[in-house]
């Protein structure tokens, strides 16, 4: 049986990057109509000024724009400090293996620093302490980048969303894990009392 891997470190990093405006993906283009776009391209590529782009002019346009877009690489930029530290191939981009090295190294240090109860994961309070240090400027640069990613990574944290169901299990008098009429009545009574 295959097993679920919630998200690879690289996926987490990229997913988070993807959601930061202007960091990943194609730079947003304004919604340009066909006529507007053609008019702009005519200015640049209509070499014989006959008001249209013939096959030759369009081929030049295609190759020029193709080169320009390809040179934009993956579409995001990372700080020079980041690349200097982890771009082992020196190609100006982070390859999958390089992401893994970076993730493993940086999160190991953060875990050692903030995992107060030494349970191998960062709990809610531990994450909060880490992010507080980012806020205070105690963590900066590449470690701050990964602190943010680590805080978002739910694959290695205690699931806060289980708190509610775990709390209800305290009312599971018969220990069968299922809600009986009596158990539900006690929960409702408890809730009413707290209100």
């Amino acid at each position: 049986m295959n097993h679920y891997r919630p998200c690879s470190p690289r996926c987490v990093a990229l997913a988070v990057l993807a959601l930061l405006p202007g960091v990943i993906g194609e730079a947003a283009e304004p919604p340009v109509s066909f006529d507007q776009r053609r008019a702009e391209l005519l200015k640049e590529f209509d070499a014989n000024h006959d008001g249209r782009l013939d096959d030759g002019e369009r081929e030049k346009m295609r190759l020029t724009r193709q080169q320009a877009r390809r040179s934009r690489g993956a579409g995001y930029t990372l700080p020079a400090e980041f690349l200097a530290k982890y771009d082992a191939s020196k190609d100006g981009e982070m390859q999958p293996a390089e992401w893994k090295v970076a993730w493993d190294a940086e999160t190991k240090i953060l875990l050692e620093t903030y995992d107060a109860d030494k349970d191998g994961i960062l709990g809610k309070a531990e994450k909060a302490a880490m992010l507080a240090d980012v806020g205070k400027g105690k963590i900066t640069g590449v470690p701050a980048f990964f602190a943010g990613r680590m805080a978002q990574d739910q694959s290695k944290s205690e699931p806060e969303y289980l708190e509610a169901s775990q709390a209800l299990l305290k009312f599971d008098a018969d220990g069968d894990g299922r809600a009986s009429a009596e158990e539900l009545a006690r929960i409702r009574a408890s809730r009413a009392e707290k209100r």
Binding site: P159, Y161, L162, A164, S165, Q166, L168, L169, F171, D172, G177, R178, A179, S180, A181, L184, I187, R188, R191
Partner: peptide, 18 residues
């Protein structure tokens, strides 16, 4: 309506959010 399990249903769904 109060979000509690229906009678006979489990309190928890393993590690899944309920």
């Amino acid at each position: 309506p109060d979000g509690l399990p229906p009678e006979g249903f489990p309190f928890a769904w393993g590690k899944n959010q309920v």
